[in-house]
Nucleic acid binder design. Structure first.
Length: 580
DNA sequence: GGCCATAGCGCG
DNA sequence: AAAGCGCGCTATGGCC
């Protein structure tokens, strides 16, 4: 059971549609959309079909209407277009509808920034679309949904549709148990569930104690300075860095000035990166390293961040599901996915509540094992410490070398000998990523386990590689083209692993969300391979068990029958900093 | 004044 | 030990 929905001046329109998108009754006008949605949710638990979860759901949720399932037309359109190699085309609902009707396609307009909920974006305003009213808007939602269901039914997992995929990739994919387990349906459902979770997490907020944050800053930087002033500790360090060079006016934030200072001191450096500085013997180095670390903390997550992003004891980032090409999430403002470990002290559960923090251990190598169907790697991934098992199996017990080799296989580093060992012992796994790299170098497309598709090469890339292969290329064109090809190979090599890991994590998130429905506990954070649930202390053990079950469920749904395990490390802690 | 590229580093 | 992948964010510094 599906119900298409559009909002209109507080009320809205609902219309039941079948699985294939055909209407199953007349449009039903409602005066109070949230009340109508809540009632229908209780009665039928339908899948809500709407233009964009991020636009419609926050208001519904605020008014008390929680949705269990959705079909987000914009997110689905993006997945379908990408699967066809059509990356640059606008993917919003209005764009999809315009394409369907053969009308000029509007650009994807950026959502206005600002406080969540403030100023409703006009993206789906019927006036802007030149439409007579919400009835026509509903017609569009129904039509685009039906079209997407047709395209989803036709999106058969056949890798030969992918340009440039060599036989190796095809065999590797099929050897793993056959491409996408259920077409793109699972991906689309998980993407929409993720969008619901994102809105709910933004509404719940991550518990955040401003006084603890302030105490951490004060301990590291000195007391909060007046607006615009530099904290004492930073001013001291900057002065001492300057003194070490005999340059009192040196600005440590300026790489150019710092490079000049080192050059004048007889130590020319390629850059002022920390790892370069660490190899330099000069009295300014430790001061500079300390300055850089504290300066970053102050600039990015200092008192102004606290003022801007924490209110009422909650940090409310704006998540952007599917914001990364690999399907990982991004955030808009607040830097929620880069919170420094030092500040996780400030993430403290409410009285009587606690956090269940669960993160997937060694997710990407496990994903590679499951993707490639490599028996040896799957054996190593069947237990707790994959790298230790790998080391015992093929690297004479040297865990560090085993880890380096496997990371290089997934990311494209050059580790010479280690790769030879890896290739001999785990031919399917290495073959899988190398086929993906070859496809990328040739300009082809690769896909995640659930069918999320990488972007095609840019026109600049095509120009660079064509210039290198053309007749009488100039001397610089050849290395430039080769470099472009290699760069893209590393991207697609990594894409198949990172994006499949994102598939798994997204399905995990959806499974956790479903298991928590009706419970007191709430998802409050999701970071690539990690979920955080805020729950009453008495529920923590049950929540931890649910999260573990959700991980096993995600493994089955995404990878089917595999020996590979996806263990979670689960911590029940009152403070986020105490997890792992 | 705003815009943009670059450098650098936080997270996974 | 560092580097290979994906991001967001800030400061600098050149440009219009």
């Amino acid at each position: 059971m599906r119900v298409a929905v559009v909002g209109a001046e507080g009320g809205g329109l609902l219309q039941a549609v079948a699985e294939d998108g055909s209407p199953q009754g007349p449009p039903q006008p409602v005066r109070d959309l949230a009340a109508a949605v809540a009632e229908r949710e209780r009665a039928d638990r339908p899948r809500w079909v709407w233009a964009a979860t991020a636009e419609l759901y926050p208001g519904l949720l605020r008014a008390g209407a929680r949705a269990d399932r959705a079909h987000d037309l914009g997110l689905t359109e993006a997945i379908l277009l990408a699967a066809d190699g059509r990356w640059g085309e606008p993917r919003s609902f209005p764009a999809a509808w315009a394409r369907l009707r053969g009308l000029p396609v509007p650009d994807d307009t950026a959502r206005p920034s600002g406080a969540p909920g403030a100023g409703q974006p006009a993206l789906f305003d019927h006036d802007l679309l030149g439409l007579p009213g919400p009835a026509e808007l509903l017609e569009g939602v129904v039509a685009v949904h039906a079209d997407q269901q047709r395209r989803l039914a036709g999106a058969v997992p056949r890798s030969e549709r992918v340009q440039g995929v060599g036989a190796g990739a095809r065999e590797a994919a099929e050897g793993a148990g056959g491409g996408w387990p259920g077409g793109l349906g699972l991906l689309v459902a998980a993407e929409s569930a993720g969008a619901l979770a994102a809105v709910e997490m933004a509404a719940a907020g991550l518990p955040w104690r401003p006084e603890v944050h302030d105490a951490v800053l004060t301990e590291l930087l000195g007391p909060r300075p007046r607006a615009g002033a530099v904290p004492q500790r930073l001013a001291d360090l900057a002065a001492r860095v300057g003194a070490a060079f005999g340059l009192p006016r040196l600005n440590p934030d300026s790489p150019a000035q710092v490079l000049r200072a080192f050059a004048n001191a007889g130590t020319p450096l390629p850059s002022t990166r920390s790892h370069v500085l660490r190899g330099v013997d000069h009295p300014a180095v430790p001061l500079l390293l300390a300055y850089k670390e504290l300066s970053r903390l102050h600039a990015t997550y200092g008192w102004s961040w606290l003022d801007a992003w924490v209110a009422g004891g909650r940090f409310r980032p704006e998540y952007v599901p599917g914001g990364v090409v690999s399907g990982r999430w991004a955030t808009r403002g607040g830097g929620a996915l880069q919170i420094p470990h030092a500040l996780r002290r400030a993430v403290v559960a409410d009285p009587g509540w606690t956090f269940v923090v669960a993160d997937a251990s060694q997710l990407e190598p496990r994903v590679l094992a499951a993707l490639s169907g490599d028996d040896g790697l799957a054996r190593a991934a069947a237990g707790g410490d994959l790298y230790a098992a790998l080391a015992a199996d093929a690297f004479g017990g040297d865990r560090a070398r085993a880890k380096t080799a496997l990371l290089a296989a997934m990311y494209g580093g050059d580790v010479g000998q280690l790769m030879t060992v890896l290739r001999r012992r785990f031919p399917a796994a290495v073959g899988y990523v190398e086929a993906a790299a070859r496809t990328g170098e040739e300009g082809g497309l690769v896909r995640s386990r659930l069918g999320r598709t990488c972007p095609p090469p840019s026109t600049a890339w095509l120009a660079a590689t064509e210039a290198a292969g053309g007749l009488g290329p100039d001397a610089e064109a050849v290395p430039r083209g080769r470099r472009a090809a290699r760069d893209r190979g590393r991207f697609t090599r990594n894409f198949v692993v990172q994006a499949s890991a994102a598939d798994w994590a997204l399905v995990l998130l959806a499974a956790v969300r479903r298991r928590l429905a009706g419970e007191a506990g709430q998802l409050v954070f999701f970071q690539h391979d990690e979920v955080v649930v805020h729950c009453p202390r008495d529920d923590a053990d049950r929540v931890a068990a649910e999260v573990r079950d959700a991980a096993a469920e995600s493994g089955r749904l995404v990878f089917g029958d595999t020996a590979v395990r996806f263990p979670l490390s689960v911590a029940v802690v009152d403070c986020y900093a105490d997890a792992k």
